[in-house]
Design a protein around this nucleic acid. Structure first.
Lengths: 201, 201
DNA sequence: CTTTATTTAATACACTCGTATTATCAAATA
DNA sequence: TATTTGATAATACGAGTGTATTAAATAAAG
């Protein structure tokens, strides 16, 4: 009977506005009023689609993680050599310059946002950690890792490196050099892979 | 003529209270009222010692960086084998469990705090970056690095790794395992150092 | 056209924020 | 002791926050 507005589409619109605000002003600027203004709706309209700010944030965070997981899956299915695929995948997890809706930055902001629940951060729900795990698992399958590699340790090492690089990418506004990040990841992959098969990276 | 209260000592007290609040509640909880309560003084008293919140924050951030630089210098002068010194130094830059006033956590919080100035983050003023640079520089002096090492790249790689590990340490409350971090750093140092001199780490 | 459910808009409430103002208290000098 | 100056305390102001409430507008169904 009412106006024909797709509820889910509108929720996506609002979540994207939230996303945009988060990147532009950080978590501190993500007030419901700011978000409503960014989405071009009023406060009441926003509250019609999301009954609380917490719900909106959870929805947006989920959206960001879905986007990252999706992107990683696409890279996995690319028609490239394994080492090329892996390199592209990892680079895709970092902020890109002039990226309007950076999933990497948004993920970091959510990750660093202190939840009122005092439970520690759950890496199991981190899309980037899952992607890194997949990458390492693939390297094992392809028998590319050096002998006597501690898989768990190397997974955590690569994960920490990715988080550090992502942070660097987020904090540096314009003067961020993605080529440097690419070279760092290449160096890292080379150092954990067997050397016998030549310089893959 | 007045009460005999050392101005600078009191400013340090307040800065320490700020530090404590930052770690306990994050940057969002660091309101002047919260800080005053933590320091056991009133709002007016706080404003007497710091004319603005911004000044207080800058003072506290400076204090944190001084503490880190100091600690790193101590480690450098320790009477240990070079590789032991370096390992201890790097570990000292990470959050330690049950550490009341963690300089590492406080530094990260400041680093991630979006300044109203839109200038990008200046690594030159980051005490941890300086420490990492010193470490790498030392490895060069001692001729411990592998041949054809890209010093700038490896410095940035280690820096990113340290930031990632520090983040992990900050986000995990109780379930944080410093031994894992130690092993990761050991592995990393081994991978960038020459192998001929045996397993140093 | 009227009804009805959906969507929007506007305003209000209680709270916290940083800052400012003002008066009061304490102690060392004269 | 009186005075002066450092230090403290209490309160207020305007802005911003999340949420709640209520009235209005919209468009499909009868």
């Amino acid at each position: 009977m009412p106006k024909l507005i797709d509820h889910d589409v509108k929720r996506l619109d609002i979540a994207q506005a939230t996303w945009k605000i988060l990147i532009k002003e950080g978590a501190g600027g993500a007030s419901v009023r700011n978000i409503a203004k960014e989405a071009g709706i009023t406060l009441g309209a926003l509250r019609y689609y999301f009954t609380s700010q917490e719900e909106l944030m959870a929805f947006t965070e989920e959206l960001v993680h879905e986007k990252i997981t999706e992107k990683a899956a696409e890279h996995f299915m690319a028609d490239l050599a394994p080492h090329e695929k892996i390199l592209d995948l990892l680079l895709g997890l970092l902020p890109q310059p002039q990226e309007e809706l950076s999933a990497s930055k948004a993920r970091l902001i959510f990750k660093l946002q202190p939840k009122n629940t005092d439970k520690p951060y759950d890496t199991g729900r981190d899309s980037v950690y899952q992607a890194v795990k997949s990458v390492m698992s693939n390297l094992v399958m392809l028998n590319l890792l050096k002998k006597d590699t501690d898989l768990s340790l190397e997974t955590d090492r690569l994960y920490a490196l990715m988080d550090g690089l992502a942070m660097e990418g987020m904090l540096r506004g314009t003067g961020y050099n993605p080529y440097k990040a690419k070279n760092i990841i290449k160096t890292h992959l080379t150092s954990i892979c067997k050397t016998e098969s030549g310089d893959l990276y």
